[in-house]
Design a protein around this nucleic acid. Structure first.
Lengths: 210, 210
DNA sequence: TAGATTGTTAATCGATTAACAATC
DNA sequence: TAGATTGTTAATCGATTAACAATC
């Protein structure tokens, strides 16, 4: 059941640590201290050490961290070298944008299914090996292709129903881009990205500064 | 200079309160208590009252909140009835998706400029009244059309430079969709949305649960 | 008036940061 | 050994939740 109670912020920072280590490695550095990393990232050294301590001991006292080793450790922690399969439900502009998002393939997220309920879209090819399928085939395809992550980019009113269907097909996690909050059982992981809320928050802050 | 030190989470929740009030109004309710709202939203009543208390007193003790009045107050707090103009820098898949994002127009965010440096895209019309412009015209257009929000959907390596250019043209806020963090002066507001981090966080959580 | 619910103060919880003993 | 830096404990900070006096 996992669940060490690790702050989400820690996970976000781990990806930043990794990118930082990549740069150090490129510059030919093989060892690095939490202080050096913290300076680059504009955070406190103890934050880095605390974050890492959730997962084990990766450094040498008095010496620091081996860049390559720490990268491997973070790769392990985050499951970065695993291959993840995902599908996109709703091939509108946003769905298409995610299908073509360059960072995902590099990060081993492989698109294995695309669904829509618009008959004019069904059957159209995507990338080399995919065809837009009817949402009727959602459950069957998730099971057959062992898809573990589902991306919801449909109009809000369909979000909960399609989320339920993915859950019933055995999906492990859902990324919900609709403005509607969906409910999933606790064993299914959920990330919500509400683009309009970022616009709203920004507008509020600008408003405050006037 | 504003800056009451209001948690970002409070702003996010205010938009949820507003949506909740919309539903109550539709159901013909004209008065509502923090308890009733909290039940719907699955949070604590004191959270709602605390959030509202940052901005003033909006209820009647022993009675609750007038639904319509509270909606108006939230509209004011968040600047929801103001018109906001924004531009998109980088008309790839993601930029196009945001250009066509349905919630934004409804929320009074008006697209006033679209830029790219790909010659094959420049000159193409978008919506009724826009044409994709060269990034050379970025500063001029931001000033002429009084654009206050800039959306960055370019490859990461161009992010900082284009951010700087928008800042120098007098932009008020930037929404950065690239995986690269940008630095802006404190008077410029910044929101960062890293889509790949959500995939990564989800993968981590799934990994943990195995 | 008695009951209900606010606005606000105090307590709790969780995350960040500082301090330091352990140790390379 | 002396200096450096870790891993971890304790202190601080900030946000959420509970409690309650004010008051409709």
């Amino acid at each position: 059941m996992g669940g060490y109670n690790i702050p989400k912020a820690t996970i976000h920072r781990l990806t930043r640590y990794y990118r930082c280590l990549e740069r150090f490695l490129l510059n030919g550095k093989s060892n690095v201290s939490s202080k050096e990393m913290a300076n680059k990232l504009n955070i406190k050294p103890s934050q880095i050490r605390k974050d890492l301590s959730y997962f084990g001991e990766f450094g040498k006292r008095g010496v620091g961290y081996d860049v390559r080793e720490l990268m491997l450790s973070i790769e392990n922690i985050l499951g970065m070298k695993k291959n993840w399969s995902f599908c996109i439900v709703g091939i509108g502009n946003l769905g298409l944008a995610i299908a073509n998002y360059p960072g995902l393939t590099k990060a081993r997220f492989k698109l294995k299914g695309v669904f829509d309920n618009d008959k004019s879209k069904i059957g159209i090819g995507l990338h080399d090996d995919l065809v837009i399928q009817s949402v009727n085939e959602l459950e069957k395809t998730i099971k057959e292709r062992k898809i573990s992550i589902g991306v919801l980019t449909v109009p809000g009113k369909y979000a909960q129903k399609l989320s339920d269907r993915m859950v019933s097909a055995g999906i492990d996690g859902i990324i919900n881009f609709t403005p509607v909050r969906v409910i999933v059982p606790k064993q299914v992981m959920l990330e919500e990205i509400d683009i309009s809320i970022s616009f709203r928050t920004l507008a509020f802050q600008i408003n405050l500064n006037l």
